[in-house]
Design a protein around this nucleic acid. Structure first.
Lengths: 226, 226
DNA sequence: GCAAAAGTGTTAAAACTACACCCATGG
DNA sequence: CCATGGGTGTAGTTTTAACACTTTTGC
C-alpha cells in the first residue's frame, strides 16, 4: 500500500484507508486485503492506498475502494488521521482513515492482481494487521457505534425492505448488547424515519413480519437511542 | 504556511492547523496570525505549518503552536483533515486541523519574525481567512459545541477556581443560548466533577459566590447536558 | 436601604425501563 | 395442533423543563 520514501524528506506520502464494515452471520465484519509486497507480505490490511496528486482525499478513497474491492461509491465518513512517524516502515506516510457500512450481499468483491486475496473478517477475530490498521479498525468500530445512535447510517447496510426485528438485530450486533423489543420498536417508529411498505415477509414458519423501508436512505443526523 | 510543490507530484506536504479558542469579553475568539508571504500576504490564518519528517502530527501541532504563538502544550483534539486539491495555491498540501480551548489570560501571545501579527478574533467577526481556514474554524466551532456537552473540556478554559455563574456563562456563550440557572446548577453538581473550594468571591457589590474547582482538569468524557 | 448577583425547590411533562401474553403462519 | 417468531400496552421511575423569591454583600 505504500512506496519507499526517504525519511528525512519533508514531503510525505498521503494515504487513505477505507474501513469497510458489513454484517455477516450476525457478526460485524471488516473487509481486508492480503498484501503482496514486503515487509507486509501476506499480512492483511485495509484496502487503501496512496492519494494521487490531482485528487482530493474523498476522491481517493472512492477510487481505491473501487479499484481494490470493486465496491462503488459507498457513503464514507472521515474517521481520523494517523500520522505517527514510524507507522509505515517504508517511510513517512500519513493516512486518513474513512469509515463505511454496507450490505455485503449487494456488492461483489473483486480480487485484483495487486493484492492476493480479499476477505471479510469478523472484528472479533482479526488476523494480524499491517501498519496501525488494528488501531484504525478499533477506532472505526467505536465511531460506528456512536454513529448508530445519532444517525440513520444503518440504512446503507439493510436491504431495501426489512423487518423491525432485522433492524433490531443489526443494532444489537453492532452495539454488542441486547435491546428490549417493545422499547426499540416504540422508539424507532416514533422517529418517523421508517415507513411501512405494505409488504410482508412470507413463507416462514411463523406469523409474517411487516416490511419497512427508510423514508430517506440519505445518511443524516437522527437521535436514535438514548 | 506552505512552500511551493509541483502539483503532478505524488508526494504531498502535510500541514497541521491548530484552531485555538478562548473566551474574551464573553465572546468566543479564535487565535489567528497575519501571513507575510504571497499569495496570502496580509491575510489571516490559523497558526499552523508543515509537519517535519521526523515528528508525528501531534508533535507538529504542539511545536508549531509554541513557535507561532508561544502557547505551550495545550490539550489538542484532532478535528478533521482537509485535502481538496486546490486548497493551497502553492501546491498539494493536506492539512490536519486540531482544536483546543484555553484561557487567554494564562498565555502570553508571542509574535515572531515569520508572521506579522497575531490576534484574537471573535468568531462572529472573522476577517477574510487564507486557504480553507474559514471552513476549519466553522467545523471547529461545531465540534467544540459538541465536546462541551460530552466532556469537561471547559476545564482548560477556566481559572483554577471559578463561580458556577462563570461556568454557566461559558456554556451559554459557546453554545449561543441561554440556560436556566437552577437546572444548570442542579445538573452540573450532580455530575460530581466539581468540588467546592471553600473560598468565596468577595469585594463585589452583591452576595459573595462560592468558588468551585474541577475534581480533575484532565479532559475526559462526561455527559454534561441533555 | 438599595442595587446587584447568588442561591435555592417544586411541579408537570416527557422519556425511559421493565415486563408477558396473544397472533398468524408453515408444517 | 404445535412450534416459531411477530406484534402489542402499561405502570413505575427517571429525567427534563419551566418558573420566582429570598439572601448577602458593597456602597
Amino acid at each position: 500500500m505504500t512506496k519507499p520514501v526517504e525519511k528525512k524528506y519533508k514531503f510525505a506520502v498521503i494515504a487513505v484507508d477505507p474501513i469497510i464494515f458489513s454484517l455477516i452471520d450476525n457478526q460485524l465484519h471488516v473487509l481486508l486485503i492480503k498484501m503482496k509486497k514486503d515487509p507486509y507480505q501476506d499480512t492483511w490490511a485495509a484496502p487503501g492506498g496512496l492519494v494521487g496528486g490531482d485528487e482530493s482525499l474523498d476522491e481517493a478513497v472512492w477510487r481505491l475502494t473501487k479499484d481494490n474491492t470493486g465496491i462503488k461509491d459507498p457513503h464514507f465518513e472521515q474517521l481520523s488521521t494517523f500520522g505517527e512517524v514510524e507507522r509505515d516502515p517504508f517511510g513517512r506516510v500519513v493516512s486518513v482513515a474513512y469509515l463505511t457500512l454496507l450490505n455485503a450481499d449487494k456488492v461483489e468483491i473483486k480480487t485484483t492482481q495487486e493484492y492476493g486475496e480479499i476477505r471479510w473478517f469478523s472484528v472479533k477475530r482479526l488476523p494480524k494487521l499491517a501498519y496501525d490498521h488494528r488501531d484504525m479498525v478499533q477506532a472505526a468500530v467505536e465511531r460506528l457505534q456512536e454513529r448508530l445512535l445519532e444517525s440513520n447510517i444503518v440504512a446503507s447496510l439493510l436491504a431495501e425492505e426489512f423487518t423491525l426485528t432485522a433492524l433490531q438485530v443489526v443494532y444489537e450486533t453492532i452495539l454488542g448488547k441486547k435491546l428490549d423489543k417493545r422499547n426499540f420498536r416504540k422508539k424507532i417508529l416514533s422517529l418517523k424515519i421508517l415507513k411501512k411498505t405494505g409488504h410482508q415477509e412470507l413463507f416462514k414458519a411463523n406469523r409474517p413480519a411487516e416490511l419497512y423501508k427508510f423514508v430517506s436512505k440519505r445518511v443524516q443526523p437522527v437521535e436514535i437511542l438514548g
